[in-house]
Amino acid sequence: MKAAKFDYERPADLDGALRLLGGGGDVYAKVLAGGQSLGPMLNLRLAQPGLLVDVTRIPELTRVEDDGEALVLGACVTHAMIEDGKVPDVTGGALPSVAGAIAYRGVRNRGTIGGSVAHADPAADWPTALSALGAEAVVRGPSGSRTVPVSEFIVGVFETVMGEDEILEAIRIPKLSADARWGYYKVCRKPGEFADAIGAVLVDAEHSVHRLVIGATNAAPVTIADAAEVLGGNGVPGASFDLDAARRLVDGADTNLDDMERHIHAVALKRAVEQVAK
């Protein structure tokens, strides 16, 4: 399959990109970043935009900043840059660890953190991992910027809160305290495939964070923000968190999964928690 006809623009700045997205009349414009999901969709003609707006040469979107409380990564920072430590890590190793296990190196070289979040494929890593880390999406539109927690940014399968005239500008990842612990467990048929199930957990007692995320469901990642009790309060986190406890959480969440899938998600969640309990 080869893509249907489309126009292509590569604006030099964010305002230029916003003008192209907002000014098209009946032209359906789509943002192109790393193209690792959009490329195949174009070739399969599942997506047939009239205009592709390539945002990879916009300097604002590759910036890396420390604003004191959080690390701000421009949306076009690639998975490989995170994997390779080319950007600072404020998450005790969570960011590079997740980045390094996304798909294959060829995909990581081009795929971007913002593209992954904006594409909102539930089986991708960043939507779940960033929800667990309490990250925020910085969205720019014609009328300015707004900030939305990643856990609220994605509202369904391939669905976000963004309007067609908005761009995901950056991801803001809060710094974890020194004794914070995280766990991340992904089930896939083979390394490099999209996940069949993801379990993620963050325990940062100093910041009163006990957060679980059930990812790679047939819906938006499910964030359980008040998991302190199921994780055993302030004792050894997760010591009493068994498969039944995990299954109860999965069963209670809006996942659109069948029985066997919920079982596998419960296992993933349990194994993620085991990582913080060790």
Partner: peptide, 11 residues
């Protein structure tokens, strides 16, 4: 002339 254009015809 090209595969993409041939696929346009298919559609």
């Amino acid at each position: 002339d090209t595969r993409a254009e041939a696929e346009d015809l298919v559609e």
